[in-house]
Design a protein around this nucleic acid. Sequence first.
RNA 1: GGCUCCAUGGUCAAGCGGUUAAGACAUCGCCCUUUCACGGCGGUAACGGGAGUUCAAUUCUCCCUGGAGUCA
Length: 356
Amino acid sequence: MNKRVVIGMSGGVDSSVAALLLKEQGYDVIGLFMRNWRETDDNGSCTAEEDFCDVKSVSSTLGIPYYTVDFSHEYMDKVFMQFVDYYKRGLTPNPDVLCNKEIKFSCFAHYAKQLNADFIATGHYCNVLKSSEHTYLTRAVDENKDQTYFLNQVSEQQIENVIFPVGNMVKGEVRKLAEKYGLSTADKKDSTGICFIGERKFREFLANYIPMREGDIKTLDGHIVGKHNGVYYYTVGQRKGFGLGGAGNGEPWFVIDKDVEKNILYVNQGECDRLFSNEILTKSFNFITERPQNMEFRCQVRIRHRQPLQTATAKLEGDNVRIIFDTMQRAVARGQYAVLYNDNVCLGGGEIDIVK
RNA sequence: GGCUCCAUGGUCAAGCGGUUAAGACAUCGCCCUUUCACGGCGGUAACGGGAGUUCAAUUCUCCCUGGAGUCA
């Protein structure tokens, strides 16, 4: 009896090829398409429909059964509510990190278990490394596509029976393979935007959930230089979207800080020291596999997806971790995650709570 | 009210009789990207109005209009 793998199929190339590889490796493969957001996109079209068509197409090419499941209630409760709440509080949430923790490696995994799966799989670019007693999450071979950042909140238990078939491939190889096997998704554009929701005009999208509230845009020394529709729509370091142009030294303006209580957006023309920091405190840090032995250790860190790894010193402080970077970091946003690495191993991550 | 300046794209700002009327910031599009951002590359977009002078006016003169400053 072949081992059964339930693979999350999004309708993209990566999960298509992941399914292909599993099939080739002789697993009993079942495709599962998740539908977690019930709305059309900005253009009024429903990409979920198109994606599901691709899942059907690829599944039939591969000769595997497929199912569809709807976790939109769970997604709303466990991911989207917090997302909105964070923005209301002036933070910059990362819904995709939560989505992996709560939906893909939780709801999805439980559902797969009901289908008698021995393993679950996804098209994520990352890997698992097994030692005699532990399982570690490791970076993808394709540096450019590594998605471990988004998995920083999962637990060892959640990845113990997970297979990431494309984790040791580069994107080009994935597409070639898809083409070779005639998968309909071979040339499909990579999807971006919030997972399951897609690319949106962000402020307009947020305005559906957080009412606009006009306020002043001020310089750091208190001069009013414009008006905004709500500080929560903006992220520290942001340049576009508040219409400040001309005058001064001709440099672009950047968001430096936000005062949610007073509804003031602080900006500066050109980058300035206030935009940079080399020390942060993360809260309720999640170590995926094991808590480090030393209270203080050297490591690599990234504070945003795809940021090149930054060298730093980490200090354990209870459930929190203080991180002191070797070099200044630009636009550290509260609500995002600082994710630690020890070379290829992703140690885990914590939400950025305080930026010094 | 007198006098003196100023008037170019959304904003700031080059230009100094013949230019495809710079550039920056904003804005828009594309690229990058399973968060939000950053970033890269492109596009749209202007001579306040009316008379003159001149072969030729954004460029010179006058008037109007609209700003700014200054003086009783």
